[in-house]
Amino acid sequence: MLEIKNLQARVDEKEILRGINLTVNAGEVHAIMGPNGSGKSTLAGVLAGRSAYDVTGGSVTFNGQDLLELAPEERAREGIFLAFQYPVEIPGVNNMYFLRAAVNAIRKHRGEPDMTAGEFTKMAREKVKLLQLDPSLLNRAVNEGFSGGEKKRNEIFQMAMLDPKLAILDETDSGLDIDALQIVSHGVNALRSPDRAVIVVTHYQRLLNYIVPDFVHVLANGRIVKSGGKELALELEEKGYGWIEKELAATA
């Protein structure tokens, strides 16, 4: 589904990604872990098409298409979803209206007819339960005045509504208490399917107790330095990122 080859990217002349290689197949859940500044969020942003990042080398193909050629909205329509680390507050734009515009933009791209207001509301009512989100939030402005936990749950609610092929969760666990973490994880797990892939970007192993990954990759200094199964996350939790750095220094 997703093939990243030797991907290099920079922000303001500063090199952040220094050659990422990663293959993600449908149905898989990949966790990307790493210390602060290792490039985790940059990787998520580059995949979603954030313009602040300059891709300086390498390639990304998504279902056979050159992803880097596509505008952010085209990527979303092709089935990429980014759950933001810091969801944006948009005063004056109604949550439901915004989401219906998004759902219909994606449906249009797939050659499906617009969803009527009735169908949309019905679907939203179902999905909102999954995330235990207060339905009144849907009629407020996008993320405006939402608590940190509500914002993160709203991200996963949007994911459920938009039905992506590849979901990228950028530190969705940060700032969540254990209850919210469980709700969010439950929401993500409910969306796991053989057709869908998930990339979970996180600093902490804790989330991976709930969203159990098939693969864990450790990102350090802009490269994937170690890959393994879910047990790698536990090892990291126990030994800290220092362990990886030491191991790398030893083999260097």
Binding site: G49, E73, P87, I90, F98, A105, I106, Q158
Partner: peptide
């Protein structure tokens, strides 16, 4: 904000 909307498929 523009990027947020775009990332949801809105042109």
């Amino acid at each position: 904000s523009l990027f947020y909307l775009q990332s949801r498929g809105i042109g």
